[in-house]
């Protein structure tokens, strides 16, 4: 045990979860909001649409908040390193919100021109959320004690969090691709299928991260 009270590392984890994820969501929502303000200036009736698109990159902040609450109030008896790892996973993966903000901003721009593209823009804008969901997933797996070996109970848990967390930054790249794909789809609706294939490519690295995180939690190297 590093500290006398395991919740000390837990608190650190909770802080990182809500702090870093909040940073990501803040930047992402800011990017989407700037685009929203421009759209509303052109057409005030698009206020609702702008709010919806701006809401997308805010979910990462919510996940961070959720994990912080879970660490502090619900899974208090989880191993201390698992708590820290969970916080790091959710927090860093929450930076994918920056990419989601970029995609949402492009989506909003496209919808301002043509209402009919709302659904498609939405689907593209939601892609970079996958990374945050992987982060949340690893955090939950760490906290609920699915795996109970050294992979979760030792500092190895932090490694799992870092793996899925940093790999989650691929969400920024994905957001940029998604933004481009929204533009392409707005011009040619048939581009949607192929655009999706390109836009999910950066997810490969998030999957690598998730995979390694799961292997660490399984304690496969011990």
């Amino acid at each position: 045990m590093v500290f006398e009270n395991p919740l000390l590392l837990g608190a650190l984890g909770a802080g990182l979860a809500v702090g870093i994820a909040g940073l990501g969501s803040g930047i992402g929502a800011g990017i989407a909001g700037a685009s929203g303000a421009g759209v509303i200036a052109e057409d005030p009736s698009k206020f609702g649409t702008a709010i919806v698109f701006q809401a997308l990159p805010q979910t990462q902040g919510l996940y961070g908040f959720l994990v912080a609450i879970l660490i502090l109030f619900v899974f208090k008896s989880a191993p201390e390193w698992a708590m820290l790892g969970a916080g790091v996973a959710t927090g860093l993966a929450g930076l994918s919100a920056i990419g989601q903000g970029i995609a949402s901003s492009a989506g909003l721009g496209a919808v301002a021109e043509d209402d009919g593209i709302f659904g498609k823009a939405m689907v593209f804008s939601v892609l970079p959320e996958t990374q945050a969901i992987y982060g949340l997933l690893v955090a939950i797996l760490l906290l609920v004690g699915v795996f109970s070996g050294e992979g979760v109970a030792t500092i190895a848990a932090l490694g799992a969090g870092l793996a899925v967390g940093f790999a989650g930054l691929s969400g920024i790249g994905q957001g940029i691709t998604a933004a481009g794909a929204i533009g392409a789809t707005a011009r040619d609706p048939d581009a949607m299928g192929k655009g999706l294939v390109l836009a999910v490519m950066p997810e490969t690295f998030a999957i690598f991260g998730l995979l390694i995180a799961i292997l660490i939690m399984l304690g496969i190297m011990f």
Binding site: L62, L66, T130, I140, L210
Partner: peptide, 27 residues
């Protein structure tokens, strides 16, 4: 193979969102 694995793991979002709903409601 990682693409295929990604497709399968992608369904883990069912758990993540399910948990997000009940977790946030609890918060």
């Amino acid at each position: 193979i990682t693409g295929f694995l990604g497709n399968v793991l992608s369904y883990a979002r069912l758990l993540a969102l399910c948990l997000a709903t009940s977790g946030l409601a609890m918060a």
